[in-house]
Nucleic acid binder design. Sequence first.
DNA 1: GCCAACGTTGGC
DNA 2: GCCAACGTTGGC
Length: 152
Amino acid sequence: MNYWLMKTEPDECSINDIAKAGEQGVLWDGVRNYQARNFMREMTLGDQVLIYHSSCKTIGIAGIAEVCAAAFPDPMQFDSNSPYFDAKASPEKPRWDAIRLRFVAKFSNVISLEALKKVNPLAGNPLVKKGNRLSVIPFSAEEFTAVKALND
DNA sequence: GCCAACGTTGGC
DNA sequence: GCCAACGTTGGC
């Protein structure tokens, strides 16, 4: 079992949207960063994922989801009508991956970035570093537990 | 809306 | 392989 954090703009896909998707979960596509993609390829079924709302009014971790489909080629890279289209990708040589995420829990309150910066095990985590742009971040069990504890 | 930080691209 | 230019991210 691995732990991760994934960023999303809640206008695009919020923790509520994931909850509404039910058992089959949501398609997590559009990741166009190699480091983030490589992390997605390491994900296995049942991995726990903290859902982080960015670029919005209430920034922070909103809940937990789990991986319900491991990495597969992101269909949007082949769709010339999609903003995620990549002319350099082909079905024979896909470049980008997607996963699926299923709802696990919504926190009673969004755990704010300000609060996260005060969590000891998170010191040094890219999430709380200025200028960080990584949208998929691996978490240790200790980091995950410390975040989850803030919801209790 | 601003702007610092960052990743990617492309000329050389 | 370097690095300037550019586009994007993301907090404020």
